[in-house]
Design a protein around this nucleic acid. Structure first.
Length: 281
DNA sequence: ATCGTTGCCTGAGGGC
DNA sequence: TGCCCTCAGGCAACGA
């Protein structure tokens, strides 16, 4: 969804100015290099693999972007309380528009003088990396097949060799790229598979159902514009709506939408996991 | 090859 | 009021 909306906002625009923060945890490329390499470049298209965005430039270099948990990519015309009142409270300027604060790591302005693009991440879990023409990165090379393209056979093979909980496998980006904590819980619920089950105990038929559930959950989430909990916003400042459709995630103690049994929460691999103890086995 | 743990990072919220 | 603690989680790196 970010890819789609961002495409509308920056494809075919040419960078006229780059403001980068001091070197910090989000900069895998030195800020000075980003300034030099992005200036004067035009965006051709935006691609996505798993949770990574690839912004293709007209010199065939690419800007790799990961939003982490709290990363925000949006334009200066975006108006959202998520930008003005959420974490760290950046203040709107006199026009009510966003002005870069201490968490805004990169700002691009364009030759058409229309809205700027900001990259903001208060927890610095996101990443920015400039890739020369033809270059890749281990982060990309390691990724498994994109979750929206996964087949039952691929998922079954990946699960069958592992003893860890199936939930941990779904979160492993080298197995399946693009599934995060929320969507893993929701997909396991849809497929009626308990998150703690050893991955290798999932048979082919169940892997097939799980594959379909993953695709369905992700597609529905994209359709609803993603999940806004604390920080997530679209490039235009609007918010996702999928958080209103959660069946299990964040619903500990509340009724399972299928059988009314209270949803349970357990910690798996340091991640909170939510499931229905009756429906999922 | 697989597995479990730790560190990175900031803000919110709870307890005292 | 203020201080300390825990929690949120995507991912790399490490040792076993």
């Amino acid at each position: 969804m970010v890819r789609l909306r961002l495409s509308e906002l920056i494809v075919n625009r040419t960078v006229a100015g780059v403001r980068a923060a001091e070197s910090n945890y989000v900069f895998l490329s030195p800020p000075e290099q980003l300034k030099t390499r992005l200036l004067g470049r035009r965006f051709l298209e935006i691609l996505r693999h798993g949770k990574y965005l690839l912004l293709a430039l007209d010199d065939h270099s690419r800007l790799l972007v990961h939003l982490g948990m709290t990363g925000q990519l949006f334009t200066s015309s975006a108006l959202s309380p998520r930008l003005h009142n959420a974490r760290s409270q950046p203040k709107p300027n006199a026009n009510g528009a966003f002005t870069p604060d201490q968490h805004t790591h990169l700002t691009l302005s364009f030759t058409d003088n229309r809205a700027q693009l900001h990259y903001r991440d208060c927890r610095k879990f996101g990443k920015l990396l400039w890739l020369p023409q033809g270059a890749s990165d281990p982060r990309l090379e390691r990724l498994g097949v994109d979750a929206l393209a996964v087949t039952a056979t691929t998922l079954y093979k990946a699960l069958s060799s592992r003893s860890v909980p199936v939930k941990s496998c779904l979160l492993d980006q080298s197995v399946l790229a693009g599934v995060g904590n929320i969507y893993a819980d929701e997909a396991l619920f849809q497929a009626r598979v308990a998150p703690l089950r050893p991955a290798r105990s999932v048979n082919y038929e169940q892997a097939k159902i799980l594959t379909q559930a993953i695709r369905r959950v992700l597609k529905k989430a994209i359709l609803r514009g993603g999940s806004t909990i604390d920080d997530y916003v679209h490039p235009d400042g609007s918010e996702g709506q999928f958080q209103n459709s959660f069946s299990v995630y964040g619903r500990e103690g509340k009724a399972c939408p299928r059988c009314r049994t209270p949803i349970q929460r357990v910690v798996i691999g340091q991640r909170s996991s939510h499931f229905c103890p009756k429906c999922q086995c």
